[in-house]
Structures are given as C-alpha cells and as structure tokens.
Design a binder for these strands. Structure first.
Length: 267
DNA sequence: AGAATTACCTGAGCGC
DNA sequence: TGCGCTCAGGTAATTC
C-alpha cells in the first residue's frame, strides 16, 4: 500500500535512473485497472523521451514531451525497475522497455492502480484537478486546515484523508499524525482550535518527511517492503500498549477505515 | 453542499 | 485440503 512517502521514494529512484531515457516498447498485458489503460498507449510511447518525473499527491507524472504518463499505484501497485528484460510473473500488467535496456514493470495484484496518458497540463487532468495542497509545501498549514475544517461535522481523521483537503494522506499516516499531535481521530473537525490545527499540519509534514527519509533504503528494483512497520506507533497496533503511556490502544472504525488511537493520550 | 455509502480487486488469515 | 467468510484500503462515483 504505497502512500505518499513510498511514491516519493519511487519517484526519486526512477528520476535518477530514467530521465533522459526513451521508451522503445510498451507491453500492456492487462488493461483492466481502476480505469482502462488507454488502448493506444503502446503506440504512443515508443520514441518518446522521459524529460522529468514529478509527483502530485500519490500520482507519478512522467513528462514525455508531447504528453504525460500518469501512474497511480493504488493499494497494491508498485513499479519495479529491472536492468534486463525478464519474463513476467503474475500481476505484472505492463512492461515499459527503455532504450538503455531497462525494464520498468507495473505490478498490481488488486488492480486499483491507474495508468493514463494526458496531453496538456497534467494538473488539469480530471483526477488531479481537484486535489488539495501538497502537505510538504507551505500551502498546507494550520490556518488553512483550521479554515477548511470550520463548520465541518466530519471526524478530523476523515478530513485529512480527503484528497480535496490535502494530497496524499492515507490511513496509515493519518493515524500516526493524529497520535503524534495528541488529537483523537474522531474529534469533529469544527471543534479543533487553530493551535491544534497548526500542530496537526506540522506533524503530518513530519511523519511524511521522516518516512521518506527512512525509505531511502527502499529498493525499487526488488520486491522489498516499502514500509517500516516497526516505525508505526499506532497503525496495526490495536490492543497493544501505547508507547507513550502503556495503556492498550483503542481500535475503532471511522468511515469504514481501521482507526487506532490512545484514549489516554489523545484528546 | 456535505456526509455517508458503495464499488472496484485479490491475497491472507481464519474457522470449520 | 479446501471451502466460505472477512479484512485490508485509495479514491471516484453514487446516494442520502
């Protein structure tokens, strides 16, 4: 389950290896992802050079000059970079073969990922145009969060997981950030003070940046685990002792998502 | 408009 | 061994 840090680590790795390289062949074995892979992708890409690789939320954006290749890894997707072309395994849906012999392979068991082609400004793509500010930029801060949460009746955890509010915050880091901010995930958004919103915005940035740092060992070329579960303070630890006070962590469901927090430490 | 629910998909884990 | 069930979860679409 790649979240923003995993996508960013993937972006950095691919950027260092693939910028300046051109596609020679694209093999689409399975086109039925979250939305259909464009039928003409295999005809469009060969000959095009990757100019740069950007990220918006959890979307990877490959600048191919005449258009943009958009990739979202969904829940279970990942991009593997192989030095030589090898035979595909199960769930290896798309192969991008580069002119230096590299093979970029899109693998996604649950097919929640997206691969799309878009000409023009990628930020105007229908899936990107409504996304909120990047959490690692100054556009996302306490005042912004305070204003957008004002009058809203949803739980704060659901608010920060709304991609229209802030980009790229998924279930794992929402749980972690709220624990670090000492704010209960089920607090009604409108009841948060400006100070609490400032704390929350800061710790969201912290947990994401720390994870990007730890992800430096993440190897795109291999099927290594992108996460560092030992680093999670609450996610996946329902019933286990809180690292802060020792009392058992509570596990509830918010918006049908597993939510873990400490009743004692989070207010 | 905002909130809640549903749909998409497969592997893992579990009880029987 | 294997069947059926539940869970995991990003996000768009749909419904209330």
């Amino acid at each position: 389950m790649p979240e923003l840090p995993e996508v960013e680590v993937t972006r950095r790795r691919l950027e260092s290896e693939l910028v300046g390289k051109s596609f020679t062949q694209v093999l689409v074995r399975v086109a039925k992802l979250r939305q259909p892979v464009p039928k003409d992708l295999a005809a469009i890409l060969p000959g095009l050079k990757i100019r740069s690789i950007a990220r918006r939320g959890k979307y990877l954006l490959f600048d191919c000059g005449s258009g943009w290749l958009l990739v979202h890894l969904g829940m279970t997707g990942f991009l593997r970079l192989l030095r030589v072309v090898s035979s595909p395994g199960k769930h290896d849906h798309i192969d991008f073969i580069m002119d230096d012999g590299h093979l970029l392979r899109f693998h996604d068991p649950r097919k929640f990922g997206i691969v799309d082609w878009f000409t023009g400004d990628p930020l105007l793509h229908p899936l990107l145009s409504g996304i909120g500010p990047e959490p690692l930029t100054d556009a996302f801060d306490g005042l912004y969060l305070f204003n957008i949460g004002r009058g809203r009746k949803i739980a704060i955890k659901q608010l920060i997981m709304d991609s229209a509010v802030v980009a790229g915050v998924g279930n794992i880091y929402a749980n972690e950030a709220l624990f670090r901010a000492r704010i209960r995930p089920d607090r009604i958004s409108g009841t948060l003070t400006l100070l609490e919103c400032s704390t929350l915005a800061s710790v969201i940035r912290e947990v994401l940046e720390e994870s990007i740092g730890e992800g430096s060992t993440y190897r795109v070329a291999e099927e290594s685990v992108a996460y560092h579960p030992q680093a999670f303070k609450v996610y996946g630890r329902g019933g286990k002792p809180c690292f802060n006070c020792g009392k058992p962590l509570d596990e509830i469901r918010l918006g049908n998502r597993s939510t873990v927090f400490c009743q004692n430490c989070q207010k």
